[in-house]
Design a protein around this nucleic acid. Structure first.
Ligand code: FES
Ligand code: FES
Lengths: 144, 144
DNA sequence: TATAAATAGGATATTTTTATCCGAATTAAA
DNA sequence: TTTAATTCGGATAAAAATATCCTATTTATA
């Protein structure tokens, strides 16, 4: 469904959100350990998330990654997915036609569109704060 | 969402179904042209579909690929997807945890499960005959 | 101002997916 | 029985995704 990069990106964002709510910055090493991902690869993804304004980086000593507290509840899963995997999962044809077009539909268009829209709505209606809270309360997990 | 191999596999199966309904066998060259896919790669996928009993091959001169007429309406999209991409899209965790487990859920589990189940139901309730008919009537397309 | 801790980013390596090629095996028909 | 058309399957190549490594740059603090 999502690329590995995107999975790491989502989990990393959630972990950063948890820590930012407590005023703590985190670095790639901690993040990679917490979400069980390759550190250097994760660092690349973090850079991408910084460029697309999902997270913020602070360079230099005592730096790290963080998210403005007020922004945590405003960042939707869809922004993270789009930043890393692009919008194909939302708008692309399920069978790989050049574009998903009502007037030139692939055989699964009508049925696929419903599922795709539901996925889109789900991602657009889920924000980082919701996800961070569940981790914190121990009712969901970032690894294993 | 689906791999290229899976997209080609679905489109090829639909094209074979259309032709089998008319008693015609088709070969990888015709298939690749009709679904706009690389011929040799498509041939490999056809072999996999033969091995998993989705389609039937007839070797030698005047051979080709076909599907038993009575089977066309019985082959679900889900069988094709499973044969090529496996069952991860149905049963795997959306964030890549080792397994999707109610008792050890990832942060998006509850919401993701709903979408994943809807996708599964969609694929299980769609058969090749339905898809072939729309192509034949010109209301859906296999390429461009 | 020097130092140490941190992100940025380019180069490279590995793995997986996608794609191509070619000879062997099969088979219907001439 | 020979030929031509066809699938099968192994070997290889190319491209993309995933992963690693190293150096440059930034910056807070001693
Ligand atoms: S055209 Fe294929 S999903 Fe819309
Ligand atoms: S645990 Fe991640 S989707 Fe179920």
């Amino acid at each position: 469904m999502f690329s590995k990069a995107c999975e790491y990106g989502i989990k990393a964002s959630i972990f950063i959100a948890i820590n930012s709510r407590e005023g703590k910055r985190v670095n790639p090493k901690e993040i990679a350990e917490e979400i069980d991902s390759p550190k250097a690869f994760t660092a690349k993804i973090l850079q991408a998330l910084v460029r697309s304004n999902v997270i913020k980086s602070v360079q230099g000593a005592y730096g790290g990654f963080e998210i403005d507290k007020e922004k945590i509840s405003k960042i939707k899963l869809s922004q993270i997915v789009e930043a890393i995997d692009g919008d194909n999962i939302y708008s692309g044809c399920g069978l790989g036609l050049a574009s998903c077009d009502e007037y030139h539909p692939c055989p699964v268009h009508d049925k696929f569109k419903i599922v795709r829209t539901e996925l889109k709505d789900m991602l657009e209606n889920t924000n980082l704060e919701q996800l961070a809270i569940d981790i914190k309360s121990g009712s969901s997990f970032l690894k294993i």
